[in-house]
Simulated assay, not measured.
Amino acid sequence: MKFIDSKFVKKMNEITNELYRHGWDERNGGNISLRLTQSEIDQYEDLNTTLRNIPIKFDASPLAGQYYLVTGTGRYFKNVHKYPERDTGLVRITDEGNSVDLLWGFNDGGQPTSEFPAHLMTHISRQKVDNNQRVVMHCHPTNLVALSFTHKLDEASISRLLWKMQAESLVVFPEGVGIIPYMTPGTNEIGQETADKMNEFRVVVWPHHGVFACGDNMDEVYGLIETVEKACMIYTAVRSQGNILQSITDDDLRDLAKSFNVIPNPEFLSMATVTG
């Protein structure tokens, strides 16, 4: 079986197209990386030769030997499902960690997204937290980006706001969301700042820009971002309708956490019920 026919490429085609259709990945915005295991690689007959070596501007030696299916720099998500072998590539991190070996894809001379160092930094962080998490996704959800202009950039305040917009929020991201300062994208500095936040959160907001998120598989991470964005959409609609007359309370959140057996970030919500 050839890799282009794999479930991994098909899922990448599906998710990139859905992200574009949502309006979260305009032009060449957005990027995804998926870590594959050796046993998954061994299933495909066309992954035994290094097509070329591509330098990367980051020491990824902690990930040496790992395989990543990653979207390409300058590529439009609306086109990935039509040209997967051009707009995505499968790479292996070299032992030295300062380059990758291309095994499949980028057949027009392309290379991984400019945010690939940020992805790899996040992969390093999340593998220490939960080695099952092997997807990193970056996109530009409209209402979440808008919220970063109008709301104080405080993790507790924004996390609680999103939890109170819908019951699903607390269940899906009980740890809340992390926030970094505005920084220039495509740099190792923003990558490291994001990776540091990923020690605590699976969603990190890049103010006035977008979001980084991670998880076990592409459906899960897509759904995580979708849930955050839906909460922001509800808040946008609520504010457009006028004053907020009622809302989900802290006690409601506590009951929700108990019912769904999740533990809210204790810095954002105490599980002790306030009475009197």
Rank of each mutant, 00 (worst) to 15 (best):
D87R: 09
G29T: 06
Y76T: 04
S61D: 08
Y67M: 02
V228D: 08
T236V: 06
G276H: 12
A118E: 00
Y44S: 00
N13S: 15
P174F: 01
R160V: 11
D255M: 14
T37Q: 12
H209K: 07
A231I: 13
T16E: 00
F3G: 00
N132P: 01
P174L: 01
A60E: 00
L269G: 01
R21F: 06
N31K: 06
R239P: 04
L34Q: 03
L256I: 14
R239D: 11
D5S: 13
G29H: 12
V274K: 12
V70C: 11
N17H: 14
G29P: 00
K152Q: 14
L147W: 02
N132H: 13
N265A: 11
C139P: 01
N28A: 09
L47F: 02
V80G: 00
R202L: 12
S114H: 10
N98F: 14
T249E: 11
F212H: 06
N17S: 15
L51P: 03
N265M: 10
A231F: 08
A167L: 13
D46W: 13
K128L: 09
M137E: 10
S148W: 06
S240H: 13
A167V: 14
R86A: 10
F8E: 15
A195H: 03
E226M: 10
T16M: 03
F116M: 11
F149P: 01
L69A: 02
R254Y: 01
I56H: 08
G110Y: 08
P84Y: 04
M233F: 12
A64R: 04
R134Y: 09
T49F: 02
G105E: 03
L34A: 03
G242I: 13
A118I: 01
V145S: 02
H140A: 07
V203G: 01
A213D: 04
K164V: 05
E14R: 08
